[in-house]
C-alpha cells in the first residue's frame, strides 16, 4: 500500500469524521446548554465507547477472516453508495438547489425542542436522562457512518488502526473547537468538507470495487489520485452547470427539528 493512498485514507476518514462529529457536537452542546452538561457529556462518551466496540468487533474479524478481494468489492460498493450520496447532496447545496446545512439552525431547533422540559430538569451538574439519551442518540447515529467508513477503508487496506486514529483525532479536534467556540459550530466549513470527502469516498469506492473484481488500474494505487481528479472536475462542472438552471434555494439554510436532524 503506497504512501499516497494512505494519506488519502487518513484525509478521507479525518474529513468524514469531522463532518459527522460537528453534527453530533451540535446536539450534545444543545442538550448540555438546555438541560444538563454532565449527562450530555456522559451520553456522548457512552456512544463513543459503543462505536469503538463496534469497530473492533466488526473490523478485526473482517481483516482476518474475509478474503481480501471479496472484502474490497463489498466495502468499495458501500463507500460508493455513501460517497455518491454525499457528493450529490454537496453539489446540489453548492449550486443553490438545496439549502445549506446550518448548525446554528439545528442548535436552535434542538434547544427549542428540549427547552419545554427544562424547567423540570435538574441542575446542569446533576444527571438527567433526557440529556443523556439525546446526546447518546445524536453521537451514535452520526458516528455510525464514521464507523462504516473506518471499517471499510481500514479493512480494505489493512489499515484499521490508522483509520481509527484519524477518526479519533478528528473527534478530538472538533471537541476542542466546540469547547472553545461553544455554539459557533456553523463556522466550520462543513458543506465544503462534505463535498471533498464525498469525492474521496467515491474515488476510493470505485477503486476498490475494480481492484477487488480483478481490474488493473494504471499506476496501481496512484489511480486513486487520478480518480479524485476526475470526480473533482465532474463536481466543478456539475456545480457550474446547475448554477445556470434557475437555482431555487440559494442563500436559504436548513432548518430542521431534532427528529429529522438525527436521521440525516
Amino acid at each position: 500500500m503506497s504512501t499516497s493512498s494512505t494519506v488519502v485514507l487518513v484525509l478521507a476518514v479525518f474529513g468524514a469524521s469531522m463532518v459527522e462529529m460537528v453534527e453530533a457536537l451540535t446536539i450534545v452542546v444543545a442538550a448540555g446548554v438546555t438541560r444538563s452538561w454532565r449527562s450530555s457529556l456522559e451520553g456522548a462518551a457512552a456512544a463513543v465507547a459503543v462505536l469503538a466496540v463496534i469497530v473492533l468487533a466488526v473490523g478485526v474479524p473482517l481483516i482476518h477472516y474475509v478474503p481480501i478481494d471479496a472484502l474490497r468489492v463489498v466495502v468499495g460498493a458501500l463507500l460508493l453508495v455513501l460517497g455518491l450520496s454525499w457528493l450529490r447532496k454537496s453539489i446540489l447545496r453548492a449550486s443553490g438547489h438545496k439549502a445549506l446545512h446550518d448548525e446554528d439552525a439545528i442548535f436552535a431547533a434542538t434547544s427549542a425542542e428540549l427547552a419545554p422540559a427544562a424547567s423540570s430538569s435538574p441542575s446542569p451538574k446533576r444527571r438527567d436522562a433526557i440529556s443523556f439519551s439525546v446526546a447518546f442518540k445524536g453521537v451514535f447515529l452520526e458516528g455510525m457512518e464514521v464507523v462504516l467508513i473506518v471499517v471499510s477503508l481500514g479493512a480494505s487496506q489493512h489499515r484499521l488502526g490508522i483509520a481509527a486514529v484519524a477518526a479519533v483525532a478528528a473527534a478530538l479536534v472538533v471537541a476542542a473547537v466546540g469547547a472553545l467556540v461553544a455554539k459557533q459550530l456553523s463556522q466550520v466549513p462543513e458543506n465544503t468538507i462534505k463535498l471533498v470527502v464525498g469525492i474521496m469516498l467515491t474515488s476510493f469506492g470505485l477503486f476498490w470495487v475494480g481492484e477487488g473484481a480483478g481490474a488493473h488500474w494504471p499506476g496501481s494505487d496512484a489511480a486513486i489520485i487520478v480518480l479524485i481528479g476526475v470526480f473533482s472536475l465532474v463536481t466543478i462542472g456539475s456545480i457550474a452547470w446547475l448554477r445556470t438552471l434557475h437555482p431555487t434555494v440559494r442563500g436559504q439554510r436548513t432548518d430542521v427539528g431534532l427528529s429529522e436532524r438525527v436521521e440525516e
Binding site: L84, R88, K89, H97, T202, L206, A215, P218, V249
Partner: peptide, 29 residues
C-alpha cells in the same frame, strides 16, 4: 478502467439532476 468511471459519472450527474428537479419542485430543502 474506462467503463467504470464513465458509468459512475453518468449516474452521479443523472441523480444530481433528478435531485435538483425534485427539490426545486418542492421549493424547500
Amino acid at each position: 478502467i474506462i467503463v467504470l468511471p464513465v458509468v459512475t459519472v453518468l449516474f452521479l450527474v443523472v441523480s444530481t439532476f433528478r435531485g435538483r428537479r425534485r427539490d426545486g419542485s418542492r421549493g424547500k430543502p
